[in-house]
Nucleic acid binder design. Structure first.
Lengths: 142, 142
DNA sequence: CTATGATATTTGTATATACAAACATAACCT
DNA sequence: AGGTTATGTTTGTATATACAAATATCATAG
C-alpha cells in the first residue's frame, strides 16, 4: 500500500506546482528585505536594465500575460519606483530615480536567493534543472 | 547580447513558475470536460479513493494548505459532489453518489492529461522529471 | 483614402491560493 | 482533575494571476 502523500508524485501537475510554490516562498523571503514580491522585483530589475521596455516585451520575458504586467506596473508606480509614457499604442516603462537607486539592494536579494537554493541543490544541478524545466515548458503546447 | 526572453532562463523561480503555469493550463483543458479545475478534480478523485479522508491529509497529499482545501471542498459541496461530517475536531469528507458516479470520467480526464504530455515529453522522461521536481521541492526548506 | 485586420495596452471580473487569526477539541503533564 | 499546549478546521482578508472584452492605434489591401 502506497503512502498517501506519494500518490501523485509522478504527476507533472503536482510536481510542477509543488516546486513552484516552494520556490516562490523561498524567493519571497529573499525579497522581503526590499518589500517586494519576486514578480515585482524581477520586473523592476528588468526595467532598470532595459529602460523604455514595453509591457509586451516584459510579459514575454517574465512569462506573464500582458494584463498581469499592467497590474504589476501599477503597483510599482504607486510606490514611485517606475513610470510610464505613452505614445500612440506604445507604452514605455522607465525606472524612477528611486527605483534605480534600489539596484544594489535588488541585486543583493537576487544573489541571496540564488545562493539559498544553490547551496541546497548545488549550482550546476539547479541551473541544469531550471534550463530543463524551461525547455519542457516550451515544448508543452505553443 | 543575450536575447531578452532568455535572460532569466537559469533562474529557478521563473522556470518553475513557467512550467507550473503551462502544466496547469494543459491540465485545465483536460478537465474542462467535467467542468472542474485540476485541483478540484484531484481532490474529488482522492476523496473517492479514500472516503472519510480528513482535510489535513488532503492538504498534505495535494501539496496545498488546509485553508485552501476547505475552500475547494466548499465548492465541491456546492456542486453536490461530496459532503462532510464533523465529530469533535475531526472532519471526514465523503463523496456523494453523484460524485462517485463521476469516477470513470475523472479517470478518463486524468489519463488524457497524462497522455497529452507524455506524448510530447516521453513517458519515462516526464515521470523522471516529475519525481525530480518533487524531490527538489522536498529539499527546499522544510 | 477608407475599411478591415493586426497589434498594444488596459480594465472588468473571476479565482485559486495563502497567511493570520479565530475556534474548537483533544492530549498531556504535574 | 485542571490548566496548558498541541492539533484540526474554518473564516477574514489580501493578492497574484488570468481571461475576455474594451479601447486605441497602426498597417495594409483594394
Amino acid at each position: 500500500m502506497e503512502k498517501l502523500e506519494n500518490r501523485y508524485q509522478k504527476c507533472l501537475y503536482f510536481s510542477a506546482n509543488a516546486l513552484a510554490r516552494k520556490t516562490e516562498k523561498l524567493a519571497q523571503e529573499s525579497w522581503s528585505k526590499v518589500d517586494l514580491t519576486p514578480s515585482h522585483a524581477y520586473l523592476l530589475l528588468l526595467v532598470i536594465d532595459e529602460p523604455g521596455i514595453q509591457p509586451t516585451q516584459i510579459a514575454a520575458c517574465l512569462h506573464l500575460t500582458p494584463s498581469t504586467v499592467t497590474r504589476l506596473i501599477l503597483k510599482l508606480e504607486s510606490k514611485k519606483l517606475l513610470h510610464r509614457t505613452t505614445e500612440g499604442k506604445i507604452t514605455n516603462v522607465y525606472p524612477t530615480a528611486k527605483g534605480s537607486n534600489m539596484l544594489p539592494k535588488l541585486k543583493a536579494c537576487q544573489q541571496e536567493f540564488f545562493a539559498n537554493y544553490a547551496q541546497i541543490l548545488g549550482e550546476n544541478e539547479s541551473t541544469r534543472l531550471a534550463l530543463q524545466m524551461l525547455n519542457v515548458a516550451g515544448k508543452l503546447k505553443g
